[in-house]
Design a protein around this nucleic acid. Structure first.
Length: 285
DNA sequence: AGTGCGGCCTGTCCGC
DNA sequence: TGCGGACAGGCCGCAC
């Protein structure tokens, strides 16, 4: 389900509701996520306060502090650690009144002191929740990630350099998180359409100038999607329960046979790198 | 090292 | 209407 814009939309919805709040208790109804929840998962979180909610690629990072050390006791590190959450294919986070009864697939609740609960729902359980005391960027799941697509570290030259010698289709290359972090299937298709590049073309056989256009297209596409609250295809809802409206802006994704918005040629569907691809056979070369 | 594939899960949709 | 199969927004881990 969620790609970078949906995760960012979730972050923006959740952040103001949990920042500065203390976790009173943790309810685990299902530990079997992508990686089973650690035995001490709840114990690590209870009593901690949310200092910040960040995002790296499609990971949400809840920075946690311990409450201040009472005077006269041994100093406790102020930094408690980071809760890393990935929403996988079907995950969502909602902030709700703590008394809201859980529905099926509501696996984990963080219950806050002000009567609200942060609830993870994830029918397919491809998502995960991990606690780490260390710098999450050094965690094995995050450490090999490429640059953030919306940062200045991401540009055409980076893509061109990374693509040298690569024979995989450019769409698979663009979805490789070690190349650039957080570009999933929807936005890879849309960005390639904007840049006029055939998704099947070998990544190593694309000129540097075209990678400039592609990097720009990725940034524009993601930024516009975030502005519209992400893409709701079937079931994505933001933290406050609202669907995203970028679906209306999609040019190719999930629209086989529809006219290309640029040249009216029917959009074609194909499998590229084991994923569904949608493109205009006329203006993507 | 880079590439391609299987697998993890449940829900939904489509064709018979 | 029921049932099997394909497919779905992600991504790890393996074999080549």
């Amino acid at each position: 389900m969620p790609e970078l814009p949906e995760v960012e939309t979730t972050r923006r919805g959740v952040r103001p509701q949990v920042i500065g709040r203390t976790i009173d208790s943790v309810v685990v109804r299902e530990r079997r996520l992508r990686w089973p929840l650690a035995r001490d998962f709840a114990a690590r979180l209870v009593g901690a306060t949310v200092r910040e909610v960040d995002r790296r690629a499609k990971y949400l990072l809840f920075r946690l502090d311990r409450p201040p050390t009472p005077a006269g006791t041994l100093p406790v590190p102020a930094h408690a650690g980071t809760l890393i959450i990935h929403l996988g294919m079907s995950g969502s986070l909602r902030v709700l009144p703590a008394a809201t009864p859980p529905t099926p697939h509501d696996h984990v609740d963080l219950v806050f002191e002000h009567g609200l609960v942060l609830r993870l729902r994830d029918p397919r359980r491809f998502g995960c929740m991990l606690f780490t005391r260390n710098d999450p960027n050094l965690h094995e799941l995050l450490r090999d990630l490429g640059p953030e697509p919306l940062s200045s570290d991401f540009h055409g030259l980076h893509l061109a350099a990374a693509a040298r010698g690569r024979t995989a289709p450019v769409k698979a290359f663009l979805m490789d998180a070690t190349v650039v972090a957080g570009v999933g299937n929807i936005y890879a298709n849309e960005s390639l359409w904007r840049a006029g590049i055939d998704p099947r073309r070998a990544a190593g056989r694309i000129a540097a100038a075209r990678y400039d256009a592609l990097a720009r297209a990725v940034k524009e596409t993601l930024a516009e999607a975030i502005e519209k609250g992400g893409t709701t295809l079937r079931d994505f809802l933001s933290a406050d329960g609202e669907p995203g409206h970028f679906r209306l802006e999609l040019s190719t994704y999930d629209r086989p046979g529809a006219p290309c918005p640029r040249c009216r040629t029917p959009i074609r569907a194909a499998r590229v790198g084991q994923r569904s691809a949608f493109f205009c056979p006329r203006c993507q070369r």
